[in-house]
Design a protein around this nucleic acid. Structure first.
Lengths: 382, 382
DNA sequence: TCCACTTTGGCAACAGTGTTGCCTAAGTGC
DNA sequence: GCACTTAGGCAACACTGTTGCCAAAGTGGA
């Protein structure tokens, strides 16, 4: 049953040109439900009282009571004891029932697949890791992803999952779930990977059993966007920088992942840092990537970190970001060197103002993919 | 009367850290009203039928009838004749009643003040231009701005305006309306310019007449953000580049101006394009600004355009922008040279994909400031 | 021990939203 | 002249958050 005016996770037909949809009572309820759920999630196991929720949402306590009663009836919210009294009746605390639902996040990387199952709080409850040959092509990868999801899904099966997030390298269209031209793998271009995975997760278990039951919602996103989402449900404006076989970035603005109208946002590696510098494989000259990876190749990690930092400072200044996360295999070789180098570059450009925090990513891309799958429950588009 | 849960233009107490507010019926109505008004605005004088509005909003025709009846009773919407029949009763067209309200936009630049009065459609109906000495300090500038608004306000007076937008150079906090450290003008730091202007626009006309009537809502924003808004109510992801005494940028993502958590977004001029290059006045080396302005100073405009284009390409790739607007006095010296240079740089980085459109800004900063003042009516935060 | 006070939070009635079902008006096309 | 299509209003409706009121459950002073 599709409600008019409300946006479901599967609603990808709407182009970004179209206006925001009109809102009806269903959309209003969904908004407030997600808002309350998000606040309870952020509060953690300690929970929150109804009065706290009312103060933070701007709704009346009575409305909060109705909303929480509904969420409790659906199993999303549970009691968490009582708080201390502040001169009157102590508040009855509520917490997110983290076990109510689960999501699976999959990182389909060039040479291996990592997958995690998380609960509603984002806590990893199961994980899995297998080799993967991305060059084997779409069908093999879609099958491997679906296999991983089934193995992790738990006793209730894949269709009970709140969502499945798939992170893959290279250009792809987040809205349609179709892959673009992945460097070195031309056979991927135009493949509807999201649909291929979704088909394999339907109850019938086989591909193309037309109008069988519907499986869990599947989202496909760039690995860098998943990396950005891995920093958790924080609402900041942050930048995730990935240094692996190339340089990439994921952008979060006010908590939302920014993808751009063509899902191409986050192109970070081919920004020019040295006009007319050494040629890059992209055809340009003096790109951050060619400079940074050259420094890595000759073992000069501090210089690589400096270059990464200069590129980061350019992006931070443009976006007014307040946090930078670093990830990827190269960073993991020497986390302190990279964080220190980036921090130094940012500080030099801060002109005495506050410097964004710099840290290595606290969770992997698979965790971020799971976060993307959970996001709609908590009122985020992504 | 402040409605709980709804966001008014004056609601600046909410930090960007707070969650989105809960929505009640008032917020829902406001959302739909603004949505319909925005669609009618975009449709222009030709107008739109109720069925068109229903299709684009996702609301039922009946809901659209109620909404348009309300807007018509308030004078915001008027009849626009009938459309052609498509096999049945021809639709009754509705259009925005552009004359229903007006807004004033003011550009307080370093050496002159430009102001415009626009109607709801954004059409300029009056304009004004006077010298201004920004160095004369906050009080003199606030007085000059208020004077300009009063002179342009029209017969109904300033308090009848739908809004007043003020664009000023340099760092400032959009949320609080407080100025930052303007280069070369230390006396500005910390001055609450927005409040100062608002005080002078209250019915009593004098400063500090405490609880007199309330004047029109005032917004204060960076000139570059106003420049970005000047491209009209288009919902794209675009970049406005300003080349004057420095290099600045205004960012629009999905139609909304992106300001960042500290209102500092759009810092474009001090991105490093030439690592360890010539020193810049900011203390860094090889910034886009120092390279570009040096080329301008020696008369090499094509090289200046190339440098601007390389910086633009960096930003476009990061944001996935689909449009670039150029403005500022230096660009106006040789618009074709700059548009061609920027276009060439963007094309070289597009890797065969679509290239963002490049053009000189079609309206000035004052027009953009007026647009920012009107934005809340049409459902945009900015 | 009692009692005033504070705070939590549910019940019932309410105002107001968009939706549904049904109707009339006003065209087209055979 | 008539069947058909499309636009758009009226009335009843389901459901939202809000308001007014009250009971429950604490604190703290007399």
């Amino acid at each position: 049953m599709v409600e008019r005016g409300s946006v479901t996770p599967d609603d990808t037909s709407r182009s970004s040109r179209d206006p925001l949809p009109g809102a009806n009572l269903g959309a209003l309820r969904g908004h407030n439900d997600a808002l309350v759920l998000g606040l309870l999630r952020a509060a953690g196991p300690a929970g929150l009282g109804r009065a706290d929720l009312a103060a933070r949402t701007g709704l009346t306590p009575q409305a909060v009571s109705k909303i929480t009663a509904r969420l409790r009836a659906e199993g999303f919210v549970a009691d968490a004891g009582r708080g201390a009294s502040t001169g009157g009746k102590p508040r009855t605390l509520l917490r997110l029932a983290a076990d109510a639902r689960h999501a699976v996040g999959v990182h389909a990387d060039r040479d291996e697949l990592r997958a995690v199952r998380v609960d509603l709080a984002g806590t990893v409850v199961d994980r899995l890791r297998t080799p993967l040959d991305f060059a084997a092509g779409p069908d093999a990868v879609a099958a491997a992803v679906a296999r991983a999801v089934h193995r992790l899904a738990g006793p209730a099966g894949a269709q009970a999952l709140a969502g499945v997030g798939v992170a893959a390298p290279g250009p792809l269209d987040w809205r349609t779930g179709v892959m673009g031209r992945v460097t070195g793998h031309p056979q991927w271009e135009g493949h509807p990977l999201r649909q291929a995975v979704a088909d394999r997760l339907r109850p019938g278990d086989g591909v193309g059993d037309g109008n069988g039951g519907s499986g869990p919602p599947v989202v496909l996103d760039k690995d860098t966007n998943a990396g950005a989402a891995a920093s958790g449900p924080d609402s900041g404006t942050s930048l995730y920088l990935h240094v692996g076989t190339g340089l990439g970035a994921g952008i979060r603005l006010g908590g939302e992942v920014h993808r751009g109208p063509r899902s191409a946002a986050g192109e970070f590696g081919h920004q020019v840092l040295l006009l007319d510098g050494p040629p890059c494989r992209c055809g340009g000259r003096g790109c951050a990537e060619v400079l940074c990876l050259a420094a890595v190749a000759r073992g000069d990690l501090p210089e690589a970190a400096r270059i990464l930092g200069e590129g980061a400072a350019n992006a931070v200044a443009l976006l007014d970001a307040d946090r930078v996360w670093l990830g990827g295999r190269v960073v993991q070789q020497a986390p302190e060197v990279f964080t220190a180098g980036v921090r130094r570059a940012l500080k030099a450009r801060a002109f005495g103002g506050p410097t964004p925090g710099v840290a290595t990513a606290r969770a992997g891309v698979a965790e971020g993919a799971a976060e993307l799958a959970l996001a709609p429950l908590f009122g985020r588009k992504a």
